[in-house]
Nucleic acid binder design. Structure first.
Lengths: 332, 332
DNA sequence: GTGAAAGCGCTAACAC
DNA sequence: GTGTTAGCGCTTTCAC
């Protein structure tokens, strides 16, 4: 009943554990140690006869490598997260790495319990996070997505929004004056250059007066975003353009509009942020700003880091641009 | 630079590694081994001073417990998967277990590489899967979701659809005669009692003639389901009721209808399968059939299994019922 | 009360 | 070509 170990296999094949280890690691020939094909054959036969499976924990303790990539994704249902997951899934396969997602779970506690060759963290905005990450980085290989953090023993992925948010707002204000914002409730009071701030600045640049009833906020879930969008589109003298601060919110806004029998983009145009796959393939396809090749680029970087954790830490920036698609076409 | 071990801590505190282990496991007093509070204090101080973190791999190799739960979810974007993930996330917290999701990845290869205290597999329909699972179950604690598999060293989660699919169809045919099906392309040719078959039988029971153009199929992604639904609603003499074989397809159908300026449920009613949270909270809320308390029940079962893997394997069945909500209300 | 030591399954020098 | 052996970091029995 006991699960067979390398020892059992060695006994069964009549060789030493070292030989089994070598054979199973595929270093039979050409490499440093030469194991005769006959022996290798015997070992393989014994292993499969016994149903031997290597013990990952033992291997990890010895080599220091777990062949695991951990992705902490704060809001799994967000298309952003799903895009990351999909891209990573494709990238890790050839490297023999298993991607594991930590969903909606608090990485702050989970990482202490579970290690991996590389750990990606998609949100670290809470006070004290910077210090905590610096500490965790001493014994973990971290890659953090953040607009504000600086690398401190870990890598930082940053989207180089540059002036693309301004472009997005200008794109909307070029043909619309009733431009609303759909944003998270937290963003109104957050400090620093936020997406919401770009909205306010965009209005100002276009000489459009700010209206409080054109600002709708939601919590971090689809239902909340959807309801906020429905309410937004039903205010007296409703907006004809919506600047949503994520693709996920933008998609909810499109659905809300359609639900209210408003056509997108004819009755109301919608702009997202993130350039997710979900926005790209939906109907109407979503006009959005976001990084180019972000998901694949991130995935490749993570794989590289998992394989070589020694390289100096860096900031990896993905420049943004505006993707004009159907939900908010250009001026006629 | 080296990550501190139990040995480092022992040296720092001036005690032995055994004492450190005891203290850090929280067995200071009352339990078998009595460690003086003073010593415990010293050890804790040393540990935190050094930033000590236990090595999970080493602990796992010794105890055989990883405190890990693995969830293999075939289609992560499906609300079914997201519901499972959410329920599990809530259930594991008090148990000190970390849930890891294997998304869109092939469990067949991944499980051999990575173990966990319990592994949930949401789809095992390929030929040979039954045998493979039986083999993997020798060294893994598996819980498999399947309508057809029997437990062979692993547990089986099954939804006891019973006659609820018939109820669902009867619910639709009670007030509609133009009832269409939205199903996966694979289901048309699959053997056994499928959801599609329930559709055909339901029509027959109601004396409604089967129409080929009322059967729309999609591949396993949202876009495909959405497009299939759009096409379905645009056939000449379009259906006024849609029987979708998953909540995910049903949600796509609702969006498709709204996109075409058809009101749900006034112009077309939609029925899903699965009773997911996404369907429950959407607007209009989704009429669906599915198990009661499934997600929480599954999550609790998984936690239980993770903690006590010795219990005899069983089939856990979740009886289904019809949830009449807004997308397909009852006959007036 | 505390420590010494064995050993979990595996890998990698190094010896033969 | 193949075997011996020393650990990796941790838990736990048993002796002091």
């Amino acid at each position: 009943m006991m699960r067979p170990t390398i020892k059992t296999v060695a006994a069964e094949a009549g060789v030493s554990t070292a030989t089994v280890s070598y054979v199973l690691a595929g270093r039979t020939k050409g490499n440093g140690s030469g194991i005769s094909p006959a022996t290798a054959q015997r070992v393989h036969a014994a292993a499969s006869r016994l149903g031997y499976r290597p013990n990952q924990a033992a291997r990890t303790i010895r080599t220091g490598k777990s062949n695991l990539m951990m992705l902490s994704l704060t809001m799994l249902s967000d298309p952003w997260s799903l895009s990351v997951s999909k891209a990573v899934g494709a990238a890790v396969a050839p490297a023999g790495i298993t991607p594991m997602i930590l969903a909606d779970t608090d990485w702050r506690t989970a990482i202490k319990r579970q290690g991996a060759d590389v750990i990606f963290i998609d949100a670290a905005e809470r006070p004290g996070d910077a210090e905590l990450l610096a500490e965790l980085a001493l014994s973990n290989n971290l890659v953090v997505f953040s607009e504000t953090l600086e690398p401190q023993g870990f890598d930082v992925i940053r989207s180089l929004a540059g002036d693309s948010m301004d472009h997005a707002m200008d794109h909307l204000t070029a043909s619309h004056t009733k431009v609303a914002a759909l944003t998270t409730s937290g963003s109104l009071t957050a400090s620093g250059p936020t997406r919401y701030r770009a909205y306010v600045a965009g209005l100002e640049r276009a000489g459009i007066e700010f209206r409080q009833d054109y600002v709708a906020t939601f919590e971090k879930d689809e239902v909340s975003a959807y309801q906020a969008a429905v309410a937004l589109l039903q205010v007296p003298d409703p907006p004809t353009a919506i600047f949503a601060t994520s693709d996920f919110a933008a998609i909810a806004a499109v659905h809300a509009a359609e639900r209210l029998r408003l056509a997108v983009p004819d009755d109301v145009v919608v702009m997202g942020i993130g350039n997710t796959m979900a926005g790209e393939v939906m109907t109407p396809s979503l006009t959005t700003i976001g990084p180019t090749d972000f998901y694949a680029g991130l995935a490749d970087f993570l794989v590289e880091r998992a394989q070589d954790p020694t390289k100096p830490h860096q900031v990896l920036e993905f420049p943004w641009r505006l993707f004009v698609r159907d939900s908010a076409p250009g001026a006629p």
